[in-house]
Design a protein around this nucleic acid. Structure first.
Lengths: 340, 340
DNA sequence: CTTGGCACTCAACCATCATGAGTGCTAGTA
DNA sequence: TACTAGCACTCATGATGGTTGAGTGCCAAG
């Protein structure tokens, strides 16, 4: 592909992103800034179409980029602009300076992504598999009901009600918690569960029931964790002419509610530390075949713990979205590192 | 209004609920079962229109009920059918038999409301103002970071990170927690906050900083509580021809995201113990002027703690929705009473 | 009071037509 | 050889106008 073709492709995609309608040869010839006639542009476009970068919705309707075209665009043509001062200030204001607890920071990040991009924003919450168990508490709520509370080193708190067969007194429970903390505290959660399983098989202590339930809670924390994802701003999709009023929108909404496959896709993108794009069919996930996902992993204390980003139409202003997602990921990581 | 007019109004509304289109005199005359000509029906309908129960979208389009019409319908004409055995079984299955923790039960209730009614379901979560403080824990996460955990008698757990100026050791924190529990444990949360404020003004204990933060946390629990509402299934509104593709849908979505006014409306409906309906403009809340809200308060241990229900078009099958919302409220109350 | 009849209204549907944006192709030009 | 002008063709879009059918209001007769 020669220089001129690249320039035209870039110009076409930019126009299509801006306007949302197919771009014709006349307009492209005018706006591309080259002194070139529409006919010449048509020749170039025909070539680009042959090579799979463009497609015509119908015979006389100009061209729109394919996912291959977008891919080439972002890889080879796009110059990512740095985050605007205004956006940056907003990000810092919304994420950086408010860290009362991790959950709220995550919510704030999801919201701000959606607001600034006018698309759906998501945050895959930190996984706790490698988190360290900080503290366990057993509290007697009523007869035969014990509330178990787990705290990890990052301040995540998880709790669960356990029904027991015998009643336990407060003193007994405190003792159990002390034992638990002394034995398993300060170890990674998965180790705790593993050891607990082993230990429970050996001993037949009267506390077994509670410990076993605590173990299940721990397992659940790891398990549930697989699915946890915040998503916000799906309603922004209503504005998009390419989706609006069709079955596709419904499918998409159902898909993000389902979350399962989406989470799988995102876990993929947690490898590496860069912003990553899934354009159209690239995600390999049918309901997303008209959409793009821009994601970036975020790190706490140097370790990648989650991923965030936005989901929107293929036609999205990548040059702004990419730095925004990137910036949000970095700020979120920093905010979480601070807040623990 | 005579017996015949009532019968026709009832029949008209039922047909409109079923079909969603304006009902004309011919069809109404046929389906009402009375041996009456369309012309007669027209006379009756004209009267009903004068009295504000019906309205014509345009000159030749049959009639649809106004919110006054629906109100009369539900108050005077509707015979609520008992919950179908199938729905009841489903409810019990989804809410009754699963009570690992309160949060999940609430989510389950929201989901099942939305699923069974094909509308948006909501659950206003229990308010904790009157809850009794069961247990407080302070855990040192890092230097100068303390995690405070509150547990109420119903098993709600709330946590918050507190930054302190001086570092605290684990022993100190344990001592502080013990003191806190001894002094304030077993009292209603609002009393705790009140007393705490008083006590802090009097004494200048070295623990003040932590206690003050704990107090703030307590206040926040009550505060944030004002806003908490789960809502699910807004996307069901996409199916409705009366809303679809219009600005109204957008407004509605924005309104439920905002929550504030909605929560206010629902708090109103917590007085009393019956199912309550807000039909159209009755809610006094503009974005809901095309919608109805069916709500029912739910009680734990005899005390009303929250309210749940559905939000959908005025044209909803009230005879099924009402018992469903009612039943869900009762089951939820029971489930929460069990699970603590 | 009820009913049949009649004139009228109006949304919805359909076919038709003009418009204009856009294309591919070809032949001529720099 | 690369570019351009011209031309015939395609096709979505939007306007126009007629038809249909459901529905109404009103009136006069039963």
């Amino acid at each position: 592909m020669d220089e001129r073709a690249r320039h035209l492709l870039k110009s076409l995609i930019e126009q299509h992103i801006a306007k949302g309608v197919p771009v014709g040869s006349r307009q492209l010839a005018r706006d591309a800034g080259l002194n070139i006639s529409p006919a010449t542009v048509r020749n170039v476009m025909a070539d680009l179409e042959d090579e799979g970068y463009l497609i015509s919705p119908h015979t006389s309707a100009g061209r729109i980029p394919t996912h291959v075209g977008y891919r080439f665009f972002v890889d080879a043509l796009l110059r990512v602009v740095p985050l605007s001062a205004e956006s940056n200030r907003l990000l810092i204001h919304r994420i950086g300076f408010r860290a009362p607890d991790a959950e709220q920071v995550l919510h704030a990040a999801t919201g701000i992504l959606s607001e600034l991009t006018h698309m759906a924003g998501f945050v895959r919450v930190p996984r706790r598999a490698t988190r360290i168990l900080r503290h366990v508490d057993f509290i007697a709520l009523r007869e035969r009901e014990v509330l178990a509370i787990f705290v990890t080193d990052k301040g995540d708190v998880e709790n669960r009600l356990i029904r027991t067969e015998q009643p336990f007194g407060a003193a007994e429970l405190t003792q159990a918690a002390n034992f638990f903390n002394a034995t398993y505290g300060g170890r990674p959660l998965q180790d705790v569960i593993h050891n607990l399983q082993r230990d429970l098989q050996q001993s037949r202590h009267e506390m077994d029931r509670i410990l076993r339930s605590a173990m299940e809670l721990g397992e659940e924390m790891l398990e549930e964790d697989q699915q946890r994802m915040l998503i916000e701003g799906e309603f922004q999709w209503l504005d998009l002419p390419e989706l609006a009023g069709s079955e596709r929108l419904r499918e998409l909404l159902a898909a993000v509610r389902q979350k399962r496959d989406l989470v799988h896709l995102l876990d993929e993108s947690m490898r590496g530390s860069e912003v990553r794009l899934f354009i159209g069919e690239e995600s390999g996930y049918a309901p997303l075949s008209d959409c793009s996902v821009v994601s970036a992993p975020y790190s706490v204390d140097g370790e990648v713990v989650g991923v965030l980003g936005v989901i929107g139409p293929m036609r999205m202003p990548y040059q702004q979205i990419i730095p925004l997602v990137d910036g949000t990921a970095q700020l979120l990581g920093r905010a979480l590192s601070q807040s623990g």
